[in-house]
């Protein structure tokens, strides 16, 4: 059914529905460009342009969330890839001395950082499916669609990621117990 604020070139999409997904989508866009705020905002804008112009067309074959996450993923892959790698490198080197400074008091923050580093150290697809399933509340099927891989392939990535993460997190707990 066409909603009253449905988009001209994307009649199955309404502005209201996109607004409801805005925060989640921004989180995903951030992750796609090395957590750089400005680049993520630009990526979001581009994604909305794609939807507005009808170049990315939603046909109700998946949920709207899967669709827009896919749009962001494809845009990031095609246009922001080089920039994302660049941003990630900057973050890597910029964050190195910060770790040492924060070692003093923020134990909890350090633990969170280590947990997230365990996620970031996973191979790209395993990292993506971990983030989509665990942090963005998606099913493996939807996450696979966003990533552009088959469901079977998605399941394999998910399974491997879970095992690797379990190992990494268990290792962290052992280290904490020892110290």
């Amino acid at each position: 059914m066409r909603e009253h604020d449905a988009l001209e070139h994307n009649p199955q999409v309404s502005r209201k529905a996109l607004e409801a997904l805005h925060s989640q989508l921004f989180g995903w866009a951030l992750s796609r460009c090395g957590f750089d705020q400005a680049t993520a905002e630009d990526l979001m804008q581009q994604a909305y342009v794609e939807v507005l112009s009808g170049r990315a067309r939603f046909d109700n074959k998946s949920t709207l969330k899967t669709f827009v996450f896919g749009v962001v993923q494809n845009l990031a892959r095609s246009r922001f890839r080089r920039l994302a790698v660049h941003m990630r490198l900057i973050k890597t080197y910029a964050n190195a001395p910060v770790d040492e400074v924060t070692n003093d008091g923020h134990e909890d923050h350090q633990e969170q950082r280590r947990i997230w580093q365990a996620v970031e150290s996973l191979p790209r697809r395993q990292r993506d499916i971990t983030e989509l399933v665990f942090c963005r509340d998606m099913t493996i099927e939807a996450a696979s669609a966003v990533m552009g891989v088959s469901l079977g392939s998605g399941r394999v990535h998910y399974d491997r990621a879970k095992k690797a993460l379990a190992g990494a997190l268990a290792g962290m707990q052992t280290n904490e117990t020892l110290t």
């Binding site: 992750s31 909890d108 996620v119 665990f134 997190l169």
Partner: peptide, 26 residues
């Protein structure tokens, strides 16, 4: 795992989305 990862992500990378209306207008 989900709780742990969500907490870790929120702690490491603060996600403050820009206002929808602004991005949409742009």
């Amino acid at each position: 795992t989900q709780e742990k990862l969500q907490k870790a992500l929120a702690a490491v990378h603060a996600e403050t989305p820009p206002a929808f209306a602004e991005v949409w207008a742009a």
